[in-house]
Computed example of a mutant assay.
Amino acid sequence: MNALLDPVTTAARLAPAALARAIEDLLRDPTVEVPQRLVQALPGGGTLFVMPALDGRVAITKLITYTPANAGTGRPAIQGDVVVFDVGTGERLLVLDGPTVTARRTAAVSLLAAQRLAPCPGGPLLIVGAGTQGRAHLEAFAAGLPLREVRVASRSRASAQALVDLALSLGLRASVVDDPAAALADCPLVVTCTPASGVVLDGAPRHDAFVAAVGAFTPRMVELSPRLCRHVAAHGGIVVDTPDARHEAGDLLQAGLEVGAFPSLADVVLGRAAPAGGPVLFKSCGWAGWDLAAARCALGR
């Protein structure tokens, strides 16, 4: 095969519902191995991520840079590739566009978590942050949940309106909201996908809320207030994407919570944990296993 896929072709191979199923299949696969990722600080404030993973048939390495200083320059903050190899022959099978994989697999992980954990999967959905991840989550939730209505909050009114327009084109009711905290009262589905440079959501979510927080993936990054995180821990349940979140989940760490005590998405999928009632916070930090699932999906496996 040995194909180099551009962003459009990469996206076409990663349909949200199929990718969510591939992620669930990966969590059930005992042959999957995910070594610790390398995170290397770069001069100028950027970061290089080297993220390998493998199963009995394929091995991948995700090579991406994260450059926050690119915001507003026209250059993407995330750049790179996912290289896919056959473990038997060593042959390179695919090179996937890294930012597209990152956006699609992150949203598909949130979708799988919502399918398993959201008390009210029909929404309305509140999306805080109208960039690439906001768009990916809108498309994934629209494809995999019985969603009918979306509300969008963003620092950029133009970006929020563009995401609303996309929602309308998908047949959903949609509107821009100026105060995301106030919208919590009406929205049992919530996604925060901002650059995580400061708290964007405070206050208590609904008793039947599902909140997916995906923007913060280092101890210093944050989107949710400590008060919100502690409220969910006390009155509902917190699930992390992987146990690695104990080192990375800035929202939870800054709230003073013992992150290692929370169940992971694998625990939910494998029946080792179940929601106990009340609001659910799903904290996503990223994992090379999700990129392996995307590679398997792109290969049609």
Rank of each mutant, 00 (worst) to 15 (best):
V83I: 15
T61H: 09
R13P: 01
K62E: 04
G123E: 01
A59L: 06
V259F: 05
A3M: 12
F282C: 05
K62S: 06
T89P: 00
R155E: 07
D29I: 11
D25G: 12
A136Y: 01
R301K: 11
D86W: 09
G45C: 09
T47F: 07
A288D: 01
A113Q: 02
A140Q: 00
V176A: 09
V109H: 02
P76G: 07
L96E: 03
P52S: 12
V240L: 06
V240N: 03
V190E: 01
R104D: 01
L38E: 15
A233C: 07
R206P: 00
V200W: 00
V211T: 04
C120Y: 08
Q254I: 10
G171W: 08
G236I: 09
P279Q: 11
D241S: 06
T67L: 14
L168Y: 10
A17K: 07
L145Q: 00
W290G: 07
V95P: 01
R57P: 01
P188V: 13
R296E: 05
C187E: 02
L166M: 09
R173K: 13
A273G: 08
V190C: 02
Q36L: 14
T89Y: 10
K62R: 14
D179S: 11
G122Q: 15
D186E: 15
F85C: 12
P52K: 12
L224Y: 04
A213S: 13
T106D: 04
P226H: 10
A108N: 00
A142K: 02
A233T: 08
K283G: 05
G215T: 08
A174F: 04
R75E: 15
A18S: 10
S169K: 09
L257K: 05
M221D: 05
A196K: 00
F49V: 09
L19R: 04
A118Q: 03
P99T: 11
R37E: 05
D179Y: 09
G278P: 01
G198Q: 14
Q115C: 06
F210H: 03
A113W: 02
I23F: 07
R37T: 09
D6Y: 11
T9A: 15
A160Y: 03
R227E: 14
L189V: 06
V84A: 04
A11G: 06
S264D: 13
R157I: 11
D81F: 13
D6N: 15
T9C: 12
A288L: 04
V50N: 09
G45L: 08
S225N: 08
V8S: 13
P279E: 10
T67E: 14
D81W: 14
A276T: 15
D244A: 14
E91I: 11
G256V: 11
F85H: 15
P275H: 13
P205Y: 10
E139Q: 14
G300H: 07
P119N: 11
A12P: 00
A255N: 03
P119A: 12
V82S: 00
H137A: 06
Q79H: 11
V32K: 07
E139D: 11
S197K: 13
H247M: 12
R116P: 02
G215Y: 02
M1I: 13
A245P: 03
V84F: 04
V128W: 03
